[in-house]
Amino acid sequence: MHKYASPKFFYALAGQLTPWLGGLTAILLIVGIYLGLFIAPADYQQGESYRIMFVHVPAAWMSMFIYMMMAGAGAIALVWNIKLAEIFSSVCAPVGASFTFLALVTGSLWGKPMWGTWWAWDARLTSELILFFLYIGYMALQASIDDPRRAARATAILALVGVVNIPVIHFSVEWWNTLHQPASVSKIGTPSIHPSMLAPLLLMIFAFSVYFFTVALIRMRNEILERERHTSWVAQVLESKT
């Protein structure tokens, strides 16, 4: 276990994994987009416009999923003092913030033709915007503390406090009257989405997840090199590259 958690070992392992994960991301994205944009039928109510869902829904799911990973890794780093968990937590934030931004923008573009407005202060939209600010706050706090280990402790606590927002986002459409419609896929019973549309949606969610892990591994490798730059193994790695 300790072998896997050592930055040196992880650096090599991640380097071997990233090309495979990157390739898988590309294949899943191409198949998912093709099925979603060309094969899936038009919607009975929204016509062709609903297809933005194939980007919007996976992005929104990722925004919450990455936050949970970030906070979970932060908690592990706090309790067991594992460097690798600190590094993972710290690389999550920019990726998560990007997905949150993507979810907000695609939601806005979808909202204008369907609802008739770019933005409404309903509970779902507002809580997702708060999630975006949490990510921004996390990154700002991280950048303001020079010592990476102290920064990791402070940001982990911020991330854990923000976890409160995740169930609020998820259940907002059930707890309150919102403009945003309730969940289609993650509800008890059968999903209220036709299988021909659900398949590309799930593929896109899978593609976005693999993409996240690919990018996280690449970013972790950079972060490891940065933090361990004074060690002999990093010197050896850099020497063999030049």
Binding site: P41, A42, D43, Y44, Q45, Q46, Y50, M53, M114, W115, G116, T117, A120, L179, Q181, P182, A183, S184, K187, S192, I193, H194, S196, M197
Partner: peptide, 18 residues
């Protein structure tokens, strides 16, 4: 002063809806 449309969480092709 403003009317917004809500849509439900159901997605299906027109034939299925029919």
């Amino acid at each position: 002063s403003e009317v917004l449309a809500k849509h439900d969480e159901k997605y299906m092709p027109p034939e299925a809806a029919q």
